[in-house]
């Protein structure tokens, strides 16, 4: 068995699966859906398959879905050809029995210890890329997790954050104890936030350039190509799935490309790699022809921006000023039109 060097951590609902649970009716529908009725977010399965194809990787899924859904979720992932290494689900029945009602909706008190426990089992040199969404508190939790391991955040701040997020005292103790067992490292390379609610990407700039909000998995694939987690051919495979299964076209893809460029992500090398891959002889790529039109569309979108926008600046995250992001969705104060 090879030592894992890259860990990809995924949320499920709204990150991997197109799930609606805003109303009680939707919640019931989701609970009773069969595996084949569940729909993955376009491109998610292809992206995971390509990331896993590198071999030296682990796929760890942590979801707020109840443990009772394990069978159906496992079956769905299998149908999509996704092989996972960990699948952690939320034991809400236990929370209910113990009268822990705050824990039913709380995300910080559930996900943070799960992430830390998983990290404690991982090799110290393993890099991580995390995938979440903008529906709950993923950007906050993932960033806090990354900064806790890197010791960029102090214990008193973690305490204050957990208390403000209404985490039960014994869970706070468990989190802090778990944290202390993990050797200091800085493994989290990227945090992708799928914009299910179309939150403006700029909203996440307070989390620094490590957090990349995405409108689709083509954008994630582009960034991962730049980060050398994927090859250009693998990015094209993800793109083909988006085109074939979700109606993506030259316009939506080139707009997505420009959106990342406007945010200052360096895409020059990425564009060059993609161009070379498109011009390659691989039979698989015949379906994405005509190549000159594709290259022209992307080039135009970049040229129309004028000068290359500056890269987003690195910054320390002030978690205490971001506590609103840690609240359950229905208690958040920030709302966008």
């Amino acid at each position: 068995m090879t030592t894992p060097t890259r860990i990809y951590r995924w949320d499920l609902d709204k990150t991997y699966l197109q799930t609606e649970f805003d109303t009680f009716r939707q919640l019931v529908k989701t609970a009773f859906q069969k595996a084949h009725e569940k729909k993955a977010v376009p491109g998610a399965a292809a992206l995971i398959r390509e990331l896993k194809a590198a071999g030296n990787t682990r796929l760890c899924i942590v979801s707020g879905s109840p443990t009772q859904m394990r069978t159906v979720l496992t079956e769905k992932l299998k149908l999509d050809g996704v092989e996972f290494d960990e699948l952690v689900l939320k034991d809400n029945l236990r929370n209910l029995v113990r009268g822990r009602f705050k824990a039913l909706r709380g995300q910080v008190g559930y996900k943070l210890p799960v992430l830390l426990e998983s990290r404690a089992r991982a090799p110290q040199d393993a890099e991580e890329v995390l995938f979440g969404d903008d529906a709950e508190a993923d950007a906050f939790i993932y960033s806090l997790y990354a900064d806790m391991i890197a010791r960029r955040v102090s214990e008193p701040v973690v305490y204050q954050v957990l208390e403000a997020a209404e985490v039960y005292p014994d869970d706070i103790t468990r989190i802090i104890e778990q944290w202390k067992t993990i050797p200091q490292a800085d493994p989290v390379r990227r945090i992708f936030i799928m914009l299910d609610r179309l939150t403006p990407p700029a909203y996440f700039s307070k989390y620094g350039p490590r957090v990349v909000p995405i409108f689709n998995y083509f954008q994630a694939a582009l960034v991962l190509l730049g980060d050398r987690h994927l090859s250009a051919t693998q990015v094209l495979k993800v793109t083909i799935e988006l085109v074939q299964t979700a109606g993506y076209n030259l316009l939506t893809l080139s707009n997505s490309f420009q959106d990342l460029a406007r945010r200052g992500l360096p895409l020059a090398d990425v564009a060059q790699s993609l161009t070379e891959a498109l011009q390659g002889p691989a039979a698989m790529l015949q379906m994405v022809r005509p190549v000159p039109d594709i290259i022209a569309a992307f080039s135009k979108r970049v040229a129309s921006l004028g000068a290359q926008p500056p890269a987003p600046p690195a910054r320390d995250i002030d978690y205490l000023s971001l506590l609103d992001d840690a609240r359950p969705r229905d208690k958040k104060r920030t709302r966008f039109e």
Binding site: F215, T252, Q258, R262
Partner: peptide
């Protein structure tokens, strides 16, 4: 809120 897939500058 906007959908960047449908927007270019």
């Amino acid at each position: 809120r906007h959908n960047a897939e449908h927007l270019a500058v």
